[in-house]
Write a protein that binds this DNA or RNA. Sequence first.
RNA 1: GGUCCGGUAGCUCAGUUGGAUAGAGCAACUGCCUUCUAAGCAGUAGGUCAUGGGUUCGAAUCCCGUCCGGAUCACCA
Length: 597
Amino acid sequence: MNIDQTIGMVTADAVKALYNVDVASGEVQVQKTKKEFDGDVTIVVFPFVKAARKSPEDAGKEIGEYLVKNQPFIVAYNVIKGFLNLVINKSFWIGELNSIYSNEHYGIKQPADDARLMMIEYSSPNTNKPLHLGHIRNNLLGYSISEIQKANGWKVVKTNIVNDRGIHICKSMLAWKLFGNGETPESSGLKGDHLVGKYYVIFDKKYKEEIKQLMSDGMSEEDAKKNAPLILEAQNMLRAWENGDLEVRQLWEMMNGWVYAGFDETYKKLGVDFDKIYYESETYLEGKSKVEEGLEKGAFYRREDGSVWADLTAEGLDEKLLLRADGTSVYMTQDIGTAKLRYDDYPIDKMVYVVGNEQNYHFQVLSILLDKLGFEWGKSLVHFSYGMVELPEGKMKSREGTVVDADDLVEEMISTARETAIELGKVDNNSEEEIDNVARVVGLGALKYFILKVDPRKNMTFNPKESIDFNGNTGPFIQYTHARIKSVLRKAEEQGIALTSELDKGLEISDKESTLIQTLSEFETVVRQAGEEFSPALIANYVYDLVKEYNQFYHDFSILREEDMELKRFRLVLSACVARVVKAGMSLLGIEVPERM
RNA sequence: GGUCCGGUAGCUCAGUUGGAUAGAGCAACUGCCUUCUAAGCAGUAGGUCAUGGGUUCGAAUCCCGUCCGGAUCACCA
């Protein structure tokens, strides 16, 4: 039980004893006392004034009086404007610290054998262009959410659905075939995903030229878009692909192979991974057959041109296309098939899709469709909908070349971290290998923290010119604090000072120190809340607060120079716990922390 | 137009189920390194929480209206 729960309970008892009113302990409003007031925890008295028939001031005093008298760990109180501030015994806090230190996995639940299983889908790239900043947010969120749910006791299967088929893939294939002159990653030295992306852009360019030409010949824009030779040929290619045409399939396999090699490199660099990867080329047929099934059951209907639709007007939505007139499948069809295969493969208790909020409507529809098809889990799927990443000028647009490439960005972060370290003179005695590693960890830490600290549901702005800061509320700031603590702990070890989880509870410690312990004790609650709300940002902001507080302590107090051996030991244990929570918290964000920097 | 999301300091963001005088960082200005890492600490300045009502002991937070921004409503994914 944490301090808030304990206080809630004893306060409920007090209210019962004083006013004979039953209050659920969970309903007592307990909060951390603000800096400007005396005390550790604060109880909001207003809810009790009616029952007490007293002014908030008087009721607060009575409850405070009662608590101090009956609870040995509460040593003093004060009431200000209806807020009852309680001072907690220092020995209570030292006890808390002892218990935190003795638990190696403090705050992180270990997976149980009978744990429920959550499947989390994230990343989900198309194989026609390289990853960009938007994908980075998706990947970081997906990975972090997975770690957070594991820490809350879930079994997690991280999955990736690769969109490796469809008209857009055919576009880059066709462009390569027509204009590529046999270029390969080996021949040009271009990373595979970038090479394929290049031909996707070329297709778009040539296609536009054709449209323009047709329009100048007198065709309407709409007709020109439909009848341009390139788009017709791409559609041909898609049909050939679906019919298993050998040549098309070989080209497809070769180009996808290039893309996967490129993606793997980027994933590895970012430090994200997957337990199971699905490919839409392997799931879309399943989707088609489920749609046919639904058609037979009367859940869907076929139009005169042969296309298949779902009528969702009864649900307040539109009609939705499920199969095109030529029989080829669309995005929705594939998602239905993928969902089915997944539930065949795993005993999923909860399915989570990490997909941008531009697809809110899609998942609303998917949920209803799965339900109509008789999947009992259709209604309960979770669309973890996150906001877009925008540039100062607005949305990223690939056609205008304003897309921030994932590989470029990561490289830039790392080299900036490296330059900063050199500027600050942090690299004097280090090996080249260590300098590289710290630059990598810090550069990535800056990027990841920057993205994860903001509420995932909100759109965010990324300014590449200002790049990302290494001071203030940033990843490197947190990493730096960790490195400083580690440095102190190494020196303590050299001096042969042993840490212990049996610190003397009679030690005189400062308010700053007990506040730090209080913040440490909040970690469990924060992890739980981050899991419930799917919010890495809660973890990020918590770790920042903790670190900020620790730095104040570090500045104001001596650790190794403290003469009182027991106090020195206490501060070392406190520091060690902070380092551990920082490391654990950052690891929930997928961010490494260095031993020195 | 329908539906959904958002608007907090010059900029980027916090602000738990309604609680005290709305907080950080960046940018600007000022101090602090012969002692555990200054990627740090302390301070100054910066706010009509878009806006108008309502609910109540109390509203950035909940409800309604208005303004502004974004997403979506494709035989794209």
